[in-house]
Amino acid sequence: MRAVQHTLNLAWREAWAKRTNFWWSIAIMVINDLVWVLFWVIVMRRAGDIRGWSTQRVLLLQAILTTSSGVALGVLGSSRRIVELVSTGTLDSILSLPTPTLPQVLVRRIEPVHLGDTIFGVGLFIALGGLTLTRGGLFVLTTLCATVVLTSFLVMLGSITFFSERSEISESGFHALLLFSAYPIDIFSGVLKVSLHLIVPAAFVTGLPVEIVSEFSWTTLASLVGFTFAIAVAATAVFAAGLRRYTSGAGWTTS
C-alpha cells in the first residue's frame, strides 16, 4: 500500500505543480455545476415537487453526485482510462511494478478539473443547511459508497477491453451512469427504473444515498453498503480475470 500512496503523492504533486491551471480548472467546473443548479432551480420552480422530490432534495442529489464523481474521476480517474491503458500497452509498465495492479492503475493521475466537482458538492451540501453531526456523517458515508460504486462500475466497463476489442460500450456505459444518476430516480418507471438498479447502478450512486441522508433507515443503509461491497468485489474479480487474458497491446509486440 505504501507504493500506491507514493504514486498518489506523486500524482498530487504533478497536478499541484501547475498551480494556475489547477485553480482555473477547478473554477471552470464550479461554474459548470452552478449552471446545473440554475437548471434545476428553474425546473423545480416551474414544476413544483416532482414525484416527492422537492428542490432541497434535488439539490442534495446534486451535492452527492458532484462530490462522489469528483473523487471517482478526479482522484481515481484512471478507472476511465483502462481501455486506453490496455489498448496502447501502457499497462505493461504498471504490471512490472511490485504492487497490486488495480490500485496502482486507479491512482496514477489526479484530474484537478474534477476536484472542482468535489469542492462544489461539499459547498452545496453545507449551503443547503441543516448540518448536524449525524447528517454530515451520513453524507460522508453515502458519498464514499457512491464513489466506490462509480469507480467499480468504470473498472468493470474498462475491463471489457480485456475480453473484446469493442470498447464503445465502456464510453456509453459511463455516459449512462453519470446521466441517469443526475436525475431523481422516481421520475423513471417500469423497465428503465429496474435497469437503473440492476444494469446501470444509478440508483446506488444517488437514489439511495439521498434517501439515507434525508430519511434515514437501517434497511436502506444496509442495501447500499451491501451493494457497494458486492460491486467492489465483482470489479476486482473482473479486472483480475481480464489481466490473466492480457497480452500486451504495445506496438512493438503486436507488429
Binding site: V43, I50, S172, L179, F180, I187
Partner: peptide, 21 residues
C-alpha cells in the same frame, strides 16, 4: 454508436423529467 447511445440517454432522461413535470 457512442453518439447514438449518448443521444438516447440524454433525450430519455430530460424528456422524462419534463413530461413528468
Amino acid at each position: 454508436f457512442v453518439a447514438s447511445s449518448l443521444y438516447l440517454f440524454v433525450t430519455t432522461a430530460v424528456s422524462t423529467l419534463w413530461s413528468v413535470a
